[in-house]
Simulated scan of single mutants.
Amino acid sequence: MGGSSSIWFKQIKEYRKHFNLILVDLPGHGGNHAGLKDETDRSFEQIANKVIALLDYHGIRDAHFVGISLGTMVIQFIQHLSPDRVKSMVLGGSVERIHPPLILFVRLVEGVKYFIPYMWIYRLVAWILMPREHHVEARKTFIREAVKLGQREFFCWYRILHQEVNQFFARKKPVHTTPAIYIMGSEDYMFLPNIKKRYKKIMNARLHILPKSGHVCNIEKEKEFNEISISFIHSQSGFSEKHIEAING
């Protein structure tokens, strides 16, 4: 929440050697100036439908989806609503349960939100999620992008996160046939424990943990993230390495 398509700057160069790319800015994020604050229906289902409409606009029947943090939730809502559109899912720093201490914190914040600048709150949350010295680049990147979000939009997203995420994953059956890989940082202590338990119950799901990496693992460990995600997507596309080399050559 608060990031943008620009956080993929360490993936784009490598990804475009292999894939056609669409980078999506969610409502209110990055270059998307139409935010949740402008919508009457503020829900993850509505956001997922906007992404599906974008695919339709470009004539794309189905796609491989790659997401980080908030993006992984949107991907799984898309998979829930229209599983035939999702060839595979790369879920980096996946969020499938809001940790109780974080819920308590945001409830406290709700009571003082009109008296404290939201960027103070965002910086504190970013530090809670990414506290270590080697998380600095990822933390600063998200804080820099979050400035563009604005306070009203920030709290619109906060509300749907608070209201929907735990309920959705509690209801959602973990069994589905869409191939998925979770790429998590070993220091993503807020979300990794739940993913370790959950992925084993999901058909066609695997987990890869990147050592000495926090929540935003695509920035902290870009080489490993790129290699793992590219290999996984190709494994779901039926391409051999020789075929890939021929295309690139």
Rank of each mutant, 00 (worst) to 15 (best):
52 I>Y: 03
53 A>S: 12
54 L>R: 06
55 L>T: 02
57 Y>L: 11
57 Y>H: 14
59 G>T: 07
59 G>W: 01
60 I>K: 07
64 H>L: 11
65 F>S: 01
65 F>N: 00
67 G>I: 10
68 I>K: 03
69 S>W: 09
69 S>R: 04
70 L>I: 13
71 G>H: 09
72 T>K: 11
72 T>P: 11
75 I>K: 02
75 I>T: 01
76 Q>L: 07
79 Q>C: 05
80 H>G: 00
80 H>L: 00
84 D>K: 12
90 V>H: 10
91 L>H: 09
93 G>D: 10
94 S>Q: 13
95 V>T: 15
96 E>N: 15
98 I>R: 05
98 I>T: 05
99 H>G: 10
99 H>L: 12
99 H>C: 08
102 L>H: 06
103 I>C: 01
104 L>Y: 09
105 F>V: 04
107 R>A: 12
109 V>G: 04
110 E>A: 07
111 G>E: 10
113 K>G: 11
113 K>T: 03
114 Y>M: 07
115 F>I: 13
116 I>D: 08
118 Y>T: 09
119 M>T: 06
119 M>Q: 13
120 W>C: 12
122 Y>C: 07
125 V>I: 15
126 A>S: 15
128 I>L: 12
132 R>A: 06
133 E>I: 14
133 E>T: 14
135 H>A: 12
138 A>M: 07
138 A>P: 02
139 R>I: 06
139 R>P: 06
140 K>M: 11
142 F>R: 00
143 I>Q: 08
144 R>I: 09
144 R>H: 06
144 R>Q: 13
146 A>H: 04
149 L>G: 01
151 Q>E: 12
154 F>Q: 06
156 C>D: 04
156 C>K: 09
157 W>Q: 02
159 R>A: 10
163 Q>F: 02
164 E>L: 12
164 E>V: 01
164 E>R: 04
165 V>E: 07
165 V>C: 08
166 N>Q: 09
170 A>F: 07
170 A>M: 10
170 A>E: 13
173 K>N: 14
173 K>F: 05
174 P>S: 04
176 H>C: 04
177 T>Q: 02
177 T>K: 01
178 T>R: 01
179 P>T: 00
179 P>N: 03
179 P>L: 02
181 I>G: 00
181 I>W: 03
181 I>E: 00
